[in-house]
Design a protein around this nucleic acid. Structure first.
Lengths: 97, 97
DNA sequence: TGAACATATGAGCATCTGTTCATATGTATT
DNA sequence: AATACATATGAACAGATGCTCATATGTTCA
């Protein structure tokens, strides 16, 4: 074995990649590459139902891939760290050959 | 925009990551890190039903993440290229903090 | 050719997932 | 307090997913 993995690491890896396996979630994270955005902005950018976006934002937040801050009525979401950027960038490179 | 993506690139990225979003598929690919393996070997390593393994192998093969060669009755599977290794390695690093 | 072994495939099923709809919660303004 | 705006949440439903079972296909060897 080239390196030692604890018993459930690969399950955690699958859980991690589940976040990136849906186009809505990928598109949400991608539109946060540039800057933080409010729920309304994301909803309009993706041209989707506000509820659908909120559900996916919660999903990504639970996985600690995005974070948020409230400013009055508005909640702004942003990427949690560089990993998200790096993983998606690598995915983009792969599909573009 | 930091760089230009064609309209459906992000959908393709989601499709790519779908391959990595299931623990059976991750475990199959991970056990090919070391060397190529036959279907029977993979089935025994993962301690799963042969049919389940074959279905997932087809899935991964269709996505061109693994390739195979036949030697008599036996079919050996191996990783298609470094991308697979790199993507999973990055996932492992992320979950191990 | 027939038997044995290795792998692949299709149907069926239970579970999971992503969305919508209706509504609740939180905040600011009047 | 009442209203308006922004976001979150729960229930319900349709479609997708991963597995098992039975069986088909491919290969070797007697």
């Amino acid at each position: 074995m080239k390196n030692m993995l604890s018993g459930n690491t690969l399950y955690d890896v699958a859980e991690l990649f589940k976040n990136f396996s849906d186009s809505t979630r990928i598109r949400i994270m991608y539109c946060l590459f540039e800057s933080e955005r409010s729920v309304t902005e994301i909803t309009e950018l993706l041209n989707m139902n506000q509820s659908a976006i909120s559900h996916q934002l919660r999903f990504l937040k639970n996985s600690k891939l995005i974070k948020n801050r409230r400013e009055g009525k508005t909640v702004y979401y942003s990427l949690a760290d560089d990993h998200v950027y790096n993983i998606i960038s690598q995915g983009i490179e792969h599909v573009q050959e």
